[in-house]
Amino acid sequence: MSHLAFVSIAYGVTALTILALITWVLFEQRARRSELAELEARGVRRRSAAKEDDNVE
């Protein structure tokens, strides 16, 4: 294998690993947001959030 191949594989795998990390974090973010939205739609809210709304009103 040429030196160029070693360098290319190293940079390629690093890029893929970093992309996988970013994708994982964004996927988790989307999943948690949709779960919270679903609970909110069902009327399930944190007690502290309800108190904050009361104070605003």
């Binding site: 970093i18 990390l21 970013i22 974090v25 964004l26 988790e28 973010q29 948690r32 947001r33 779960e35 919270l36 609970l39 069902r42 399930v44 809210r45 944190r46 007690r47």
Partner: peptide, 27 residues
């Protein structure tokens, strides 16, 4: 910087995950 950015995002996801668990219990 990449580490700290990802770490803050992952921390936010973890806080939301705990909130979802607590809200499901509450429900």
């Amino acid at each position: 910087m990449l580490f700290f950015t990802l770490h803050l995002m992952a921390m936010r996801n973890e806080i939301w995950r705990r909130r979802v668990t607590a809200l499901r219990r509450q429900a």
